[in-house]
């Protein structure tokens, strides 16, 4: 428990640093982009909106940086991320509409990829040298193709030509978003192709990692002993897999960061209404409040996922909880 507490503290610290950097970013831009923005918006938006923008950057450029910083943090804790310049609505509202899509899509595909890769890797490692090994070049092939290309080709073939999957968007435009069965079913249908494309392009890493670990662990004495103890074959394989999966779980936290940055590409290709799509627009339009809000959400999501992976790892490997040594 104490270890988890310490990790938590570390993550809170990291989050604080990320928030601070996020605050400083527009201030460090050459030529004071905030001032430029406000100038650009004069006449287009109401004075209240301009005030909101000021607030979101820390209460106005005329005050000191430190006081701006405190205002920024205070606003943050009240859920005020400012107002998007291009979309003219609060950043928090915009994020609420797009973040769930990204987390759903990326979370589901990462988990699926991890599960499929780990299970198949464990089997491949155990039956090393069998015909199953043919899976490896197939999986590596999909990983080697640039994701953008793979996704576009899949979209064209299975979506536009064969019409096996619906394309473009996250749900049917005839439905109203909400927790209704037709809407959820439609969301799943629309997610299929992007999920398959992500899994295809990322499963090889998990598979190879697990396979190699499985081969290493299978050579360990305790696996031999579990055979000598007369345990069933299934138990023996589970003994090996249970120990072999540990590095993969440690890698999971690393992978999550990469996956989130990959989300941009996925959402671009499939026109998926997540933060990736949003971020691209925000950057193109120099919409700083929105950019900051997205960065913040991404950072916090990655940190949370890391914390989760850490806790799982601690739960699975007693050697990492060495405090209890007698």
């Amino acid at each position: 428990m104490r270890i988890i507490g310490r990790r938590l503290l570390l993550y809170v610290l990291t989050a604080w640093v990320a928030i601070s950097v996020n605050f400083l970013l527009p201030h460090l831009m050459p030529g004071n982009p905030i001032q430029t923005l406000i100038g650009k918006l004069q006449g287009q938006v109401t004075p209240q909106e301009i005030e909101a923008i000021r607030l979101s950057f820390g209460g106005g450029i005329d005050k000191g940086l430190l006081s701006q910083y405190f205002t920024y943090i205070d606003q943050l804790f009240h859920g005020n991320l400012g107002v998007s310049i291009t979309l003219s609505s609060p950043v928090s509202t915009i994020l609420k509409a797009s973040v769930p899509w990204t987390i759903g899509l990326i979370g589901v595909s990462t988990l699926l990829s991890f599960l499929i890769g780990t299970v198949s890797g464990a089997l491949l490692g155990w039956t090393r040298g069998s015909r199953l090994d043919a899976l490896i070049p197939t999986a590596t092939f999909f990983q080697a193709i640039p994701y953008f290309f793979l996704a576009t080709v899949m979209l064209l073939i299975f979506g536009s030509n064969l019409h096996w999957f619906p394309v473009l968007g996250a749900y049917s435009q005839n439905l109203h978003p909400g927790w209704t069965w037709p809407f959820v079913a439609s969301a799943f249908r629309y997610a299929e192709l992007p999920v398959v494309s992500i899994v295809l392009s990322s499963v090889a890493g998990w598979m190879l990692g697990m396979r190699n670990m499985m081969i290493t662990v299978a050579a360990e004495d305790f696996v031999l002993m579990s055979v000598a103890m007369g345990l069933s074959k299934r138990k023996v394989i589970m003994t090996a897999a249970r120990n072999a999966v540990l590095p993969s779980i440690a890698n999971l936290s690393l992978a999550i960061g990469l996956v989130v940055s990959g989300a941009l590409l996925v959402e671009l290709v499939f026109n998926y209404p997540g933060v990736g799509d949003l971020l691209l627009n925000a950057v193109q339009n120099e919409d700083y409040p929105l950019i900051q809000g997205i960065f913040l959400v991404i950072t916090l999501a990655v940190l949370a996922a890391n914390l989760l992976a850490d806790v799982v790892y601690l739960a699975l490997d007693p050697r990492t909880r060495t405090e209890t040594v007698a």
Partner: peptide, 13 residues
Amino acid sequence: IVLQSALSALNPV
């Protein structure tokens, strides 16, 4: 069977 290294012969988890 008992092996030389009990550390590696016992399941670490």
